[in-house]
Structure formats: structure tokens, C-alpha cells
Simulated assay, not measured.
Amino acid sequence: MGRARWVYDKALNHPPVVGALPVADELLVVTLEEVTAEAVIVRAWRLGSAGPVPAGSGVRIHLTAFST
């Protein structure tokens, strides 16, 4: 729950530097769970008074990958 997987258009030579920015009207945090030369898996968390909980579906995340 709260996970997204992005497969790059083509595999890279090595894992890239990844940026993840949630696009929402609420307080969210995105964590990188796995970064490989082929894909990245992120998880979005909602922050509230009860502590962090995985965000549900429909959360938008802007991802960028930089490789040299």
C-alpha cells in the first residue's frame, strides 16, 4: 500500500540519483525503497497526529532520475 514502481524507458549503466516529490494538498513524505539500473520503487506516507501511515492509491509523485 502506498507504493509506486517506475521502470525507466531503457536500463541505465548503474543506479541513478533519484528525486521524489509528492504532489498533494496534504503533508506527505516519500521514501526510496529500492533503486536499481532498471527501476525505482518508492513509498508515500501520510503524516498526522497518529504518526506516519502508508498513503493509499491516487497519490501523485513526481520522480526524476539522473545518471552519468
Rank of each mutant, 00 (worst) to 15 (best):
I41E: 08
H14Y: 11
H14R: 13
I61C: 01
G19L: 04
E26W: 08
F66I: 10
H62V: 08
S67Y: 13
N13H: 12
V7A: 15
R5Y: 05
L21Y: 09
G56C: 12
W45V: 02
A55W: 03
R3F: 04
I61E: 00
E38N: 13
A11C: 08
L63F: 05
R46W: 03
Y8P: 05
T68Y: 04
W6C: 03
K10V: 04
G2F: 11
L63S: 03
G48N: 06
V7H: 14
V18C: 14
D9W: 12
A50T: 07
R60S: 15
T31W: 14
T31I: 12
V7W: 15
V29C: 02
R5C: 05
W6S: 02
T31E: 07
A44W: 01
V30F: 04
V7F: 06
N13M: 03
V30M: 09
S49L: 03
K10P: 12
R3D: 06
W6Q: 02
P16M: 01
I61G: 01
S57G: 08
H14K: 06
E26P: 00
R5S: 03
R60Q: 10
P52H: 10
A37F: 12
W6T: 00
T31Y: 11
L32M: 03
T36K: 03
W45M: 01
G19K: 07
P54W: 09
P16H: 02
T36I: 07
A44R: 02
T36E: 02
G19E: 15
E26I: 07
G56Y: 12
G56S: 11
V7G: 05
P54Y: 09
R43V: 09
P16G: 00
A50G: 07
P22C: 01
V42D: 02
V40E: 01
V40N: 00
E26Y: 13
I41F: 10
R43L: 08
G56W: 13
V7L: 06
N13V: 08
A11D: 14
G56I: 14
D25I: 11
L32F: 02
S49H: 11
V17F: 11
V17I: 06
P16W: 00
P52S: 03
L28A: 03
W6H: 04
L27W: 11
K10E: 10
R43G: 08
V59Y: 14
G58W: 08
V18T: 11
A50L: 08
Y8H: 03
T64P: 01
V59F: 13
R43K: 11
F66K: 10
E26G: 04
L28Y: 10
G2Q: 11
E33L: 14
A55K: 04
A11R: 12
A37Q: 04
I61D: 00
V23D: 05
V18E: 00
A11N: 10
R3N: 14
I41P: 06
G58H: 11
L28H: 12
I41V: 08
E38T: 08
S57N: 14
R60D: 06
P52E: 13
H14N: 09
L21M: 13
L27R: 15
